Simulated scan of single mutants.
Amino acid sequence: MKAAVIGLGWWGKQIIKCLDDSQKITITHAYDPQIDRNDLIFSDFSVSSDQDFDAIIDNPDIDAVILATPNQFHESQVISAANKGKQVFCEKPVALKYESVKKMAQACQDNNVILGVGHERRWEPAMVRLKNMLDNNELGKILHMETNFSHDIFMKLDRSSWRLDPQYAPAGGMTALGIHLTDFFVSFLGPAEKIYAKTGSIALEHPQKDTLSVNIKFKNNISASLAVMISTPFYGRFNVFGENGWVEIREISNVDFDDPAEFIYCNKDGKRIVEQYDVVNTVKMNFEEWADAISGKSDYRIKIEEVISNVQILESIINASASDKVIEINQ
């Protein structure tokens, strides 16, 4: 499958690098109005820079577009590409509002497009191990989940960056980091029912936010909580508590380092088993499963209903943190 990457910030370039040896997806074109055509990303990876977004979605030789663009462009770009018959992969968050993601999902459905989403963390071996345990009911009835994903990498950005702009990246680190955590919650627990969230400006000045805490009640009556801070060194943890035991997954470093994850399982008798899981190319695994789904070889594990549920949670977190009220999800 021939694809074009739209958006060549750090992550857009990372996608091209991760797919360099893929036998299923070939990046033939890339475009970013902010990037010079002499940038080494084009020459080092034999990627064409001669077409803009409109030309790319009109190009019959390009099968798919990969959107690594700022959040505010996702809706129009997904819909435009889908209406041109292109398969679409969109970085997270797919949208900031429920009504927006519904329009995007409808455009994909109308044009037989499978929407890929940048939730590559679902392919992390430790999280796959946890998902299998939950599917096999090894922890018994689930009581609660809690998680923290924090990183101060964003403090290195210019304060005018869209990634720190509450209009385009609201609720602190939610759209960059927290959205992965709620994606895990949705894949494990299904849709949410009630949400309360608080943000703070501690290291950053208002209106920019650097702390976020969230409490969620899911429709199956299970509770979950998450915290995200963008002004502290990297920290990653995911906990699941069940009647027959608990699991804690700890990440030592961010995706750009090759440190293993630690998986701790405590069984009903209180015995703890510690395992380590090495880093794998989760970006490539996500894209290639999406490509296989497009060709009819397999299913894509990120279902559109889950994408919509996650955006509902995101929008509710944004609204709850702004209003200091509990938000109920009624759709």
Rank of each mutant, 00 (worst) to 15 (best):
residue 204 L to F: 05
residue 204 L to G: 03
residue 53 F to M: 00
residue 266 C to H: 01
residue 60 P to A: 09
residue 96 L to V: 03
residue 195 I to C: 10
residue 292 D to K: 07
residue 28 T to M: 02
residue 239 N to G: 02
residue 329 I to V: 04
residue 62 I to Q: 00
residue 233 P to I: 08
residue 21 D to E: 15
residue 46 S to R: 12
residue 230 I to H: 07
residue 289 E to N: 08
residue 55 A to F: 04
residue 6 I to S: 03
residue 313 I to S: 00
residue 105 A to T: 11
residue 238 F to W: 04
residue 67 L to A: 05
residue 215 N to M: 11
residue 230 I to V: 08
residue 173 G to R: 07
residue 245 G to H: 10
residue 331 Q to T: 13
residue 112 N to H: 12
residue 297 K to C: 06
residue 103 K to G: 04
residue 280 V to L: 08
residue 81 A to S: 13
residue 322 A to E: 10
residue 86 K to R: 10
residue 88 V to K: 08
residue 208 Q to W: 02
residue 257 F to A: 13
residue 260 P to V: 02
residue 131 K to I: 00
residue 242 G to L: 08
residue 260 P to T: 06
residue 32 D to W: 09
residue 13 K to Y: 00
residue 221 N to C: 02
residue 60 P to Y: 05
residue 306 E to I: 02
residue 119 H to C: 02
residue 279 V to S: 08
residue 294 I to F: 06
residue 127 M to D: 01
residue 70 P to L: 05
residue 217 K to R: 15
residue 185 F to P: 01
residue 60 P to L: 10
residue 299 D to C: 11
residue 118 G to S: 10
residue 131 K to P: 01
residue 167 Q to M: 10
residue 216 I to W: 01
residue 295 S to R: 12
residue 22 S to T: 12
residue 22 S to L: 04
residue 268 K to Q: 13
residue 30 A to S: 11
residue 11 W to A: 05
residue 76 S to D: 15
residue 236 G to T: 00
residue 275 E to T: 06
residue 225 S to V: 05
residue 118 G to F: 05
residue 266 C to Y: 09
residue 239 N to K: 15
residue 279 V to Y: 12
residue 329 I to K: 08
residue 130 L to T: 02
residue 251 E to N: 06
residue 137 N to R: 14
residue 167 Q to H: 06
residue 280 V to K: 11
residue 78 V to N: 12
residue 286 N to E: 14
residue 52 D to I: 00
residue 198 K to I: 13
residue 112 N to G: 04
residue 91 E to Y: 06
residue 3 A to P: 12
residue 264 I to S: 10
residue 318 I to N: 13
residue 140 G to R: 04
